[in-house]
Nucleic acid binder design. Sequence first.
DNA 1: GCATTAAACAAACGTTTGTTTGGTTATTGA
DNA 2: TCAATAACCAAACAAACGTTTGTTTAATGC
Lengths: 200, 200
Amino acid sequence: MEKPKQRSNNRNEHLLNAAAELFSTQGFRGTTMRDIAMASGMLPGSIYYHYGSKDELVVAVYEAGVALIVGSLESATRGIDDPTERLQAGLANHVEAITRNSHYMQVINRVLPEDVPGHEAVLRALRAKYEACFRDLIEGLPLANGVNPTLLRLMILGAVNQTQFWFDPEGKMTPAEIGEAFARFLIEPITHHKRETADA
Amino acid sequence: MEKPKQRSNNRNEHLLNAAAELFSTQGFRGTTMRDIAMASGMLPGSIYYHYGSKDELVVAVYEAGVALIVGSLESATRGIDDPTERLQAGLANHVEAITRNSHYMQVINRVLPEDVPGHEAVLRALRAKYEACFRDLIEGLPLANGVNPTLLRLMILGAVNQTQFWFDPEGKMTPAEIGEAFARFLIEPITHHKRETADA
DNA sequence: GCATTAAACAAACGTTTGTTTGGTTATTGA
DNA sequence: TCAATAACCAAACAAACGTTTGTTTAATGC
């Protein structure tokens, strides 16, 4: 395979960053190609040299976001063996990532597959890849009787992903503290407490 | 004050329902006035007899959604005194409402104040009114040491509100069961467990 | 140094958008 | 019964939209 040439002054990355920021703050439909062009210092038509359409652009952002978060979670939990500590570290990292790091993964939470007709399958697959990380984090936990791991995962994801909408950088808690607090809410009851419920 | 006249064949409610459904499934920007008109059996221009603009329409839907949910939560928890039971009943009711009842309150979760420039304040106030219900539900709980009630509320809201995106009507669990499971996850640790954390 | 071509510009395209305007229908209180 | 008007239709409007086209610039490998 031949490597695709790329010039030193390529602004593709700059373009992708601008698109990520706008999509995350204004939504997919709420962001125009002119917005993106202006934010990345180009003319609207120039974007089409890099991406075939607005849809392809948002898919690229989505893809980059998943890659970022998967890599981030991976390196944050690497080396930690205890499942409880893994979850704690993972949640802290994720809240940190969502609230601070990058607009990329905010796109994942804000842009729904149905928003991009014809690309639903790709986006759903990418999202599944992202959610699989949490499946792994939870799988190792010594769950108490009657605790549904799927429901637990969805609950955690829901709680964590909404933080981007209320998190206040000027507030008292840091993202890591929030993530740890979430973990503290959950870990104790789930792992150690025994319930008498026996419904399937 | 004079009562506003209204004819028997008024289709305002029908129009509002159609708008709610479309806004909830396609988002605010993703829904056109023509979509709404077609769904409610009118021509695009006819909508403007009822609402002055697309913005006003979505605000009306948002308003109706908040009224619905506040009323629903109120009647679901009325008569229940025990704070734990109140939370349980409230959550079950809310998951039920989000996943089944009505598109109205899905709009509240999907349409952000920033999506409707010039009406951010109204939408934020309406959302605050809605969130206040949960503040009340949590206020009465006998929280364990170190448990931040605000964070708990935000966690619960996040978990519950995301259900609309993954809930499967054909799935094994009913909305009420999901709500109760959420409550079960939370209530036990929060109320009865004592921690040694003493940070403010 | 020169041909190649990555990467952008400049300007327009046809379409869709939210909205307006003026006319029409039919329900209603008198 | 009949004027008043609530409720809608029909048709268009201007602006904004995503996209295409033809051209220009400048970095690159030979």
